[in-house]
Simulated assay, not measured.
Amino acid sequence: MAAKPRGLLERLKAGETIIVAEGYLFEFERRGYLKAGAFVPEVVVEHPELVKGLYREFVHAGSDVVLAFTYYGHREKLRVIGREADLEPMNRTALRLAREVADETGTLMAGNISNTTCYDPDKPETHEQTRQIFKEQIEWAVEEGADFIVGETFGFLGEAMVALECIKEYGNGLPAVITMVIHRDADHVADGPTLVEAMQALEQGGAAVVGFNCCRGPFTTLPLVEKVKDHVKVPIAVNPVLYRTDEEYPTMQSLKNHKGARAFPVDLDAFLCSRSMIAEFGQRCRQLGLQYVGLCCGNASHFTRTLAESLGRTPPASKYSPDMSQHFAYGTDKKLHSLNTEKVVKLL
């Protein structure tokens, strides 16, 4: 077992940057172990060894945090697919495996709650339903040894505030990281407040870190950060998706495939960012002094490694980072190869 790491707040106070790998839903969907649509993490109870393996992959690639795969593993989502009986086993298994990998690797373990898909700002009865969903997931995270709690992908400030209140009430003093999802309107959250107002409300509510995740790619998320960074004192989180969104198509849901139809979710592959784009994103985060940086939907281990390296890290996976000096045609040391590389290059 690795030495116990310093806590989230301690590391942030020391000025460190925390790298957080996310993206489990999309990665397991690509691998054939999770259904697009409901996006429920059934793989946790059906193939827990694969979940533990991906936890390890992300740490190997440079993640400082093992984020328990309980995203969309809540009561409302399991009701949709008729698996309510798996609710507690799914959460506890994801949390327990995350704790095991964090202990093995000397990283932090975070519990995870997310948008409930049932919250309606105009229907108070859904607010209590939302609170109960958060309460049970937070209590399980505490019991299974989480170091902090991430609440993410909230379009409504109201739901984000309920999540934060529940973490403060049921989280046994654990720090809260709260991130919101911003759709086409880059100036407001879904229930009306401006981005600055939303981030300030979360800060005043006691969140240790506030910011943005999901929906937008790296280069349509960073402008959101720039709008709010001078208006809050707590660290800002940035966890974009891995797709090449732009001003015309600012979100992954707005991207169109080659026939003009919505690319989300099955045709998003064509819009994946390159590794050099992720390196550029990481460098920009470094310039902005961001302390909580990660990657969301579309992430994979090689992208996390690229992000870590762009932030000045050398994770274990860097042992296998590309080294084109050894390539038989493009290598810089021609003495390594007997082939006439100039002739080959002309053919390529």
Rank of each mutant, 00 (worst) to 15 (best):
D147I: 01
T194S: 15
C166T: 12
E159Y: 00
M199T: 03
I167V: 15
C214N: 08
I182K: 09
E144G: 07
T153W: 03
I138M: 03
A201T: 14
W140L: 13
V189S: 03
F156S: 13
L202A: 07
T179C: 03
E165I: 05
E197Q: 15
M161V: 15
A146I: 01
A207P: 07
F154P: 01
P175E: 09
L174C: 05
G171Y: 14
E197F: 02
A190L: 15
P175H: 08
D191R: 11
E152D: 03
E203L: 10
P193V: 09
I182P: 00
M180N: 02
F156L: 04
A201R: 13
V210R: 12
A186I: 00
F154A: 05
H183T: 10
D147A: 11
A141R: 04
D187V: 05
R216F: 02
G211Y: 10
F212N: 12
E203V: 07
T194P: 12
C166A: 15
T194L: 14
G206Y: 10
L164M: 10
G158V: 06
V209E: 07
A186L: 09
Q137P: 14
A163P: 01
F212Y: 14
G211F: 10
I149P: 04
G173V: 01
A198R: 05
L157Y: 10
N172Q: 13
L164D: 11
N213P: 00
Q204E: 15
E159M: 04
G192D: 06
M180C: 11
Y170C: 09
T179G: 05
M161I: 14
V177P: 02
A186F: 07
A190C: 10
L202G: 07
G211Q: 14
G155L: 09
E136Q: 13
P218L: 05
A160M: 06
E159V: 02
V209P: 00
A198I: 03
I138L: 01
E143M: 05
T194I: 13
A208K: 04
L157I: 05
Q204N: 14
V196H: 06
A146V: 00
G171L: 06
E165G: 14
P218E: 03
V181L: 14
Q204M: 11
G145E: 05
C214R: 10
F212L: 12
M199N: 09
N172D: 15
R216A: 08
E143D: 15
R184W: 02
V181N: 06
F212K: 12
E143Q: 15
E169P: 11
